[in-house]
């Protein structure tokens, strides 16, 4: 059964608006209508000037994050019905500069991610010539959940430290640092620890845990940060043994 809901869309263009406003639209929502469906319907039929970012429509690309009824969520992964309200308010993600309307600027967010060197660092990997790293299932499990991150920025938008400390890398970047640190193929342990052991680094997390509450991919960035911190304090150093290259013999 369809129901009529009011969608309130945040409108602001920093280039020429002095104030932000909300535009309101009535739409029919079916049980399967997502907030992104509703917004795209409005864009197609009511006001095509609304700016928003999206691509995959299936919680994979990480581009449709916005504040929906006060909580950072993926618009394509949030059904209007599940919000349990006849009013749906959409705002751009907090802790990000606004480009226009619902589109937030991810430049600083991606730069912080990049500063964590989110790739395997190991000179042996350069000369692999038919050999491969062998990882035990337990070694894969150490980083697997963190590798599900789609860089949607919801955790970054939810983080109270990011809100006040603009030099803090944020939950996404720090969880990715742990993901590569604990990967047995990676050798740059000391280099990685030096990057996060900073005045504005991993110590500025106060374990509010809001990052893990909002992550749409089941990543627990708060856990990654605590594990990274524990590693720095020398508590789980023996949990990593750097893998070696093996040549798999043909059977």
């Amino acid at each position: 059964m369809a129901k009529r809901v009011k969608i309130r869309v945040f409108r602001y263009n920093p280039a020429h608006d002095t104030d932000a406003r909300y535009d309101e639209f009535e739409v029919e929502a079916e049980r399967w209508t997502t907030v992104l469906d509703a917004l795209l319907y409005i864009k197609a039929h009511k006001d095509h000037s609304i700016a928003l970012r999206y691509s995959c429509r299936m919680a994979s690309c990480g581009s449709c994050g916005m504040l929906i009824n006060g909580i950072p969520r993926l618009a394509c992964y949030t059904k209007v019905y599940e919000l349990g309200s006849d009013v749906v308010t959409c705002r751009p993600l907090p802790n990000f500069p606004i480009i226009r309307d619902l589109a937030a600027d991810f430049t600083a967010f991606f730069a912080k991610h990049k500063s964590m060197k989110p790739y395997i660092i190991n000179e042996v990997a350069e000369s692999i010539d038919g050999r491969e790293f062998i990882q035990k299932p337990e070694e894969v499990e150490k980083y697997l959940q963190f590798s599900y991150c789609i860089k949607c920025g919801l955790c970054y938008a939810a983080c109270p430290t990011v809100a006040t400390d603009r030099r803090f890398p944020g939950p996404q970047a720090l969880a990715q640092m742990y993901r590569y640190l604990i990967d047995s193929r990676d050798k740059a342990t000391d280099e990685r620890l030096r990057i996060v052991d900073d005045r504005h680094g991993v110590w500025r997390c106060h374990f509010a845990g809001s990052c893990s509450m909002v992550c749409p991919k089941g990543v627990d960035p708060a856990l990654g940060i605590q594990l990274l911190r524990a590693y720095l304090l020398g508590m789980n150093r023996d949990s990593k043994v750097v893998a070696e290259l093996y040549r798999r013999e043909p059977k």
């Binding site: 430290t161 006040t164 400390d165 603009r166 030099r167 005045r199 504005h200 110590w203 500025r204």
Partner: peptide, 14 residues
């Protein structure tokens, strides 16, 4: 110090 560093950033301030 921790509280003040989170309140404001900048080399002079820090």
């Amino acid at each position: 110090r921790v509280i003040l560093l989170e309140l404001r950033q900048g080399d002079g301030w820090e």
